[in-house]
């Protein structure tokens, strides 16, 4: 009886804590957004963060995109050849990448590459009192440290997703056309006939922008909220990756339900 009461109590405490954190995270996001002008007035700070979260993620994004596209090419061919519809390979590769895999996989990679780095960096700056030191110099750490990182991540994400999709399609082309020998003209023309600019490309970009916002928000918040110890920072880093992954997949479902309903 006591054990059940304790279990209920701990579940309740966790739920309340979760709601509390969500509220604080929202206030933190608003505070960060209110410092947007300062992040763009001093563009060099934001450019620096685009370098750290965007440029440094380039390799993993491009290489993964290429391989995902190549796998899609192989698997897609294997499936389509049974229906004698191999010329639809381009459509299959392009639509899967542009609508789903591009934004989602790029965001997952971005969360583990850039998101975790942002959390660890801010967490360590907090643990070593660098944020307090800044605050005591009358420089708001949310404006100077958090806002540029936030915008750097938000701006990088759609570009990374676009590169992921583009290299993925090239990977599909490589396997489908160059290796297996699907007709090149069919590959591209079928793709162009089926992929719609507004319904597919623009929606994919919107998706990746939303994911970028969510991941960077989680990353800066976890870093800023991390207990100022080595253990605290490491837990916060793990939590960034796990929470981001869950949020990306949940948001993907919601956005897909909104965007593609009744079109496909």
């Amino acid at each position: 009886m006591n054990a059940i009461a304790n279990l209920l109590r701990s579940i309740g405490a966790r739920a309340i804590d979760g709601v509390w954190r969500l509220g604080f995270a929202t206030r933190f996001l608003l505070a960060t957004l209110s410092h947007t002008p300062s992040a763009f007035r001093r563009l060099s700070l934001t450019v620096r963060e685009v370098y750290f979260s965007g440029v440094l993620s380039l390799t993993i994004i491009v290489v993964s995109g290429l391989f995902v596209g190549m796998v899609l090419g192989l698997q897609g061919y294997d499936t389509l050849v049974r229906f004698g519809a191999t010329e639809a390979l381009g459509v299959l590769v392009a639509l899967s990448l542009v609508r789903e895999l591009g934004p989602v996989v790029a965001a997952l990679l971005f969360a583990s590459r850039a998101g975790s780095a942002i959390t660890a960096e801010i967490g360590l700056m907090k643990a070593t009192e660098q944020l307090d030191a800044m605050d005591m110099m009358a420089i708001d750490p949310v404006a100077r440290v958090v806002a540029p990182r936030f915008w750097g991540g938000v701006l990088s994400m759609p570009l990374l997703a676009a590169m992921f999709s583009a290299t993925g399609i090239l990977g599909g082309y490589l396997v489908g056309v160059v290796l297996i020998g699907v007709d090149s003209g069919q590959f591209w023309s079928q793709m162009q006939n089926s992929v719609d600019f507004r319904a597919d490309i623009v929606n994919g970009v919107i998706k990746s922008a939303v994911f970028g916002l969510a991941v960077t928000w989680i990353a800066v918040f976890e870093g800023y909220e991390a207990p100022p110890t080595a253990e605290g920072v490491s837990r916060a880093t793990t939590r960034t990756v796990v929470t981001s992954a869950l949020v990306i997949l949940a948001l993907d479902f919601i956005l897909t339900a909104f965007m593609f309903r009744g079109i496909g």
């Binding site: 542009v98 793709m191 162009q192 006939n193 719609d196």
Partner: peptide, 8 residues
């Protein structure tokens, strides 16, 4: 590339 080569 996505806008002009992949989509029409």
């Amino acid at each position: 590339f996505l806008s002009f080569q992949v989509a029409t």
